[in-house]
Computed example of a mutant assay.
Amino acid sequence: MVELKANQPRWRQVHAILAERIRTGEYKAGERIPSLVDLIEEFGIANATGQKVMRALRTDGLIRTEPGMGSFVTTPEERREIEADHAKSADSA
């Protein structure tokens, strides 16, 4: 189990670790990342914490989730599309 610091929100720590794994290529574009159950076991976090991490990774454009299939690292093209969608949403707000 990965040891997390007590003085920082657990979801932020797990998010940072997974984002780093994506950025360094440990999890490659198009590759399936560990399931929520696997992340809960690896980091010793609650289900709600794991769900928050996954939402944040999706919001950041780092992963996409396919129902019944799992979550996958986005490709650079997918990230550009997500960023463009976020920009459009911000412009219309």
Rank of each mutant, 00 (worst) to 15 (best):
M1F: 14
M1E: 12
M1D: 06
V2G: 00
L4G: 12
L4A: 08
L4Q: 11
K5V: 07
K5R: 09
A6P: 02
A6I: 07
A6H: 08
A6D: 13
N7D: 15
N7Q: 10
Q8F: 14
P9D: 13
R10S: 12
R10W: 06
W11H: 13
W11V: 09
W11P: 05
Q13C: 05
Q13N: 04
Q13A: 11
A16S: 14
A16M: 05
A16E: 13
I17T: 09
L18T: 01
A19K: 15
A19I: 10
E20D: 15
R21Q: 10
R21E: 11
R23N: 14
R23Q: 14
T24E: 15
G25L: 04
Y27S: 01
K28G: 00
G30M: 06
G30H: 02
G30R: 09
E31W: 06
R32C: 02
P34F: 06
S35R: 07
S35H: 10
L36D: 03
V37W: 05
V37M: 05
L39Y: 09
L39T: 04
L39A: 01
L39D: 02
I40Q: 14
I40F: 05
E42R: 15
E42S: 11
E42L: 15
F43I: 05
F43N: 02
F43A: 01
G44P: 01
I45W: 15
I45C: 12
I45E: 08
I45H: 13
I45R: 13
A46T: 06
N47K: 13
N47L: 11
N47Q: 10
A48L: 08
T49K: 05
G50I: 04
G50D: 04
V53A: 08
V53S: 03
V53N: 02
V53C: 07
V53L: 09
M54G: 08
R55Q: 09
R55E: 11
R55K: 11
A56E: 15
L57A: 04
L57Q: 02
R58T: 00
T59V: 08
D60W: 01
G61M: 06
G61R: 07
G61S: 10
I63L: 04
I63K: 00
T65S: 09
T65Y: 03
T65A: 06
E66P: 03
E66G: 00
P67Q: 02
G68R: 09
G70S: 13
G70C: 11
S71L: 13
S71Y: 08
F72T: 03
V73G: 02
V73C: 00
T74C: 14
T74H: 04
T74N: 13
T74L: 06
T75D: 03
T75C: 01
P76M: 03
P76D: 00
P76Q: 04
P76G: 05
P76A: 02
E77D: 10
E78W: 11
E78P: 06
R79P: 03
R79L: 12
R80H: 07
E81S: 04
E81K: 11
I82Q: 04
I82D: 08
E83Y: 08
E83G: 05
A84F: 10
A84L: 12
A84W: 09
A84D: 13
D85R: 11
D85M: 09
H86K: 15
H86Y: 08
A87M: 11
A87P: 01
K88V: 12
D91H: 14
D91I: 03
S92V: 05
S92H: 07
A93N: 12
A93Y: 12
